[in-house]
Design a protein around this nucleic acid. Structure first.
Lengths: 227, 227
DNA sequence: CGCGGATTTGACATAGTTCAATTCGAGTGG
DNA sequence: CCACTCGAATTGAACTATGTCAAATCCGCG
């Protein structure tokens, strides 16, 4: 995990949490505050459960999974974070991370020092509200997971695909599925085999078309009807 | 739902969110800020999904359930809030409530105006951190629910009973179960019948003793071993 | 081309649901 | 104080979605 220079000339600065954060800072101030960027290789951990939470992160490219390992050794995946998502929001509420974050592929992140974030929350209403709203979205996501886990296998997969579709910037039915079937199962709380069967079914019903790591949603309405 | 006077002479003031909030306010200021108390009868709603979130609430006695109704009309219970718990924390992150809150029995609450809460978050680090930490606990609780829903019926019930045991102020194995079997099922995502069967099993194994709305945990270790 | 992990498919096992019937228990009224 | 009522809780029996285990196939990569 190698760190590089911060956001001073980042084209996304104005639309970014970091933008609000570093507004008015000189490069030197940023540097000393600890704003920076990193790249992680596939499989590398961004942080582990119990680590002192000193940064939160913005995904620039690639993807993470956040997960915990239960008492009986099973990996429970709590979320996937793709480009533009925030990882490690825990850090705002807790001194330590409550989950592990691991790169699913080569992944780029911006790191925002949590001390600066907390300080800025006291300074500007706009920034405080930006953080609170991010927390609100995280609550919504968790409530969504809770709802999804009360549905049938078909519905879980359908709901997941739709959420990916919504989260994707590119229009059209193309979505990125950087996670393995195993990980998807661990996220949806389904056996790998069940996930696989649902995908097969959706493809034979011409709802979906699979192409390697990507996949095309041919019949969005059918998915909505399911979920 | 009748409202009465606020916290000026509340014995709990110093250990309460409200205490930090109203610190330094005159009774008149409190009044005009909207700090107050209410009582709700069994079955009354404290708020409904979509309501403008103008207060958050502290439970003083009694209990709530927070729930949503899914597309196919099923009630999904997202939490039970007993004495000393915060209800409506949504309000900090969202302009509208994202769930319904309904009294399970006659219930007393303090109402804290969210505008005052948000304002105070800018003023004192201590108060901001108190709120953030409450949000953190809510995240933990949701993560706990997600974990629990991946367990067997026995484990879900055991984990639930243990969490009630921890949350109860009174020592000894007595816990309050103000919710019906139906509601418990809707919370744990189990059929009422399944909940009932687990309780029966736990009683015949002398882990539990039931007494109306209360219940005594005889063998805490057995519960831990299960969960 | 061939290897090894990931995915898919098949056959079978089972926890939990569903539906129906019974029992319990807190109020209520005689 | 007891009988009655009605909803809540429990019990029973059959059913089903999904898990489990094992075998077959696919696919990316050296």
């Amino acid at each position: 995990m190698s760190a590089t220079a911060p956001c001073i000339d980042c084209p996304r600065q104005s639309r970014c949490l970091g933008g609000l954060l570093v507004e008015g800072m000189t490069p030197a101030q940023m540097q000393s505050a600890g704003v920076s960027r990193s790249v992680l290789d596939k499989g590398e951990h961004l942080y582990r459960i119990g680590d002192r939470a000193e940064h939160l992160y913005l995904v620039r490219g690639g993807a993470f999974k956040t997960y915990v390992v239960s008492a009986d050794g099973d990996e429970e995946i709590r979320g996937f974070q793709l480009a533009e998502d925030i990882v490690g929001l825990d850090a705002v509420c807790n001194p330590e991370f409550r989950a592990n974050a691991r790169a699913l592929s080569r992944t780029w992140v911006c790191r925002l020092p949590i001390a600066a974030v907390r300080a800025r929350m006291l300074e500007t209403v706009q920034f405080r509200d930006r953080i609170l709203s991010a927390l609100g979205h995280e609550f919504d996501r968790l409530h969504g997971m809770l709802h999804r886990e009360r549905c049938s296998a078909d519905q879980r997969v359908a709901a997941f695909l739709l959420s990916q579709l919504d989260a994707t910037i590119t229009p059209g039915g193309e979505i990125e599925l950087p996670m393995s079937r195993v990980d998807l199962g661990r996220y949806l709380d389904l056996a790998t085999e069940t996930v696989s069967r649902v995908f097969t079914r959706l493809q034979s019903r011409k709802v979906l078309r699979k192409q390697g790591t990507r996949c095309e949603v041919v019949d969005r309405d059918a998915l909505c009807a399911l979920a």
